[in-house]
Design a protein around this nucleic acid. Structure first.
Lengths: 149, 149
DNA sequence: ATAATTCACTTGCATATTGCAAGTAACAAC
DNA sequence: GTTGTTACTTGCAATATGCAAGTGAATTAT
């Protein structure tokens, strides 16, 4: 992916977002934090899409550089780091949710079928459910279990 | 970009979206249709981010293959094609708007500063303003002029 | 105390994508 | 019929992707 060189292609808001998280992997990391409560490199590695180790490392760094993720050492295991969303990252939850809505509508085989209740809540009031989920994620919770059908 | 081979990495809704439009150029095309009323290859080419001709062609094809864009011949000029959003593509407007909100908040130099009224309307009720804008875009209108400060 | 294992990467390299510059075919203008 | 425009395609160099193997630090097992 294009390395950030302190010079954006433009300051258009869509472009800004694309440069911050717009590739085929970055938002999957955010998804795994929000939906599954994942926090470590090893957990992220175990996704159904199959991250390459160097790509995962590169994307984690990119998200940190863009202020969307933060990294801190593990409490008791010096080998591991813990990744979490910053405020800036948490504010991407409504956008993730719009993706869920869109895909639930247009992918007939979507796994969104397993969290129908969440999809309904997003459709009803994305802003409201996002605020609730932001609090959950701040506490380190995974939201999928609560909504599984 | 990864060529679609009739096999998605997964049917996760976030991944589905990423495979449909998740690279650094595709959503800029949608932006130019929605915000600027652009319709032709030549108009898309003239963006501040600077599309490469082969990349633009490739992304247009990809969006058409994914049912997000449609192409029809120009009424009177056989050299040109007219691109427009399908229903599936129009349904991405709320997501584009969430990107605008997010970037307006986190990019201190954001051009979103020029469409403050639209940003306020999105923040207030994204779904509502999106429905209005979808109708405008269906009529081929560009929304930026109406909201420029 | 030492050896084995785990975790988070890095590295080398083959393959794929990106994007520049030039070129092409169809069409419009003159 | 000639010239210019539009939407691309092509060739190729640069860059990114991703596989497989390897590395260092830390943990666990002995």
């Amino acid at each position: 992916m294009k390395k950030r060189t302190n010079k954006l292609r433009s300051h258009c808001p869509v472009n800004y977002g694309l440069e911050a998280f717009g590739d085929r992997w970055a938002l999957l990391i955010l998804r795994d934090i929000v939906f599954r409560g994942k926090r470590t490199y090893g957990e992220f590695l175990k996704s159904e899409e199959g991250f390459a180790t160097n790509i995962l490392a590169s994307r984690l760094d990119h998200l940190i550089e863009n202020g969307i993720l933060q990294r801190e050492g593990h409490e008791t295991d010096g080998r591991k780091d813990i990744y979490s969303l910053t405020e800036k990252g948490l504010d991407l939850i409504p956008l993730l949710f719009e993706m869920v809505l869109w895909s639930a509508k247009y992918d007939s085989r979507s796994e969104a079928g397993r969290i129908i209740r969440l999809v309904e809540l997003i459709r009803k009031d994305n802003r409201k459910i996002s605020e609730k989920v932001i609090e959950q994620v701040k506490r380190g919770e995974a939201i999928v279990p609560e909504y599984l059908s």
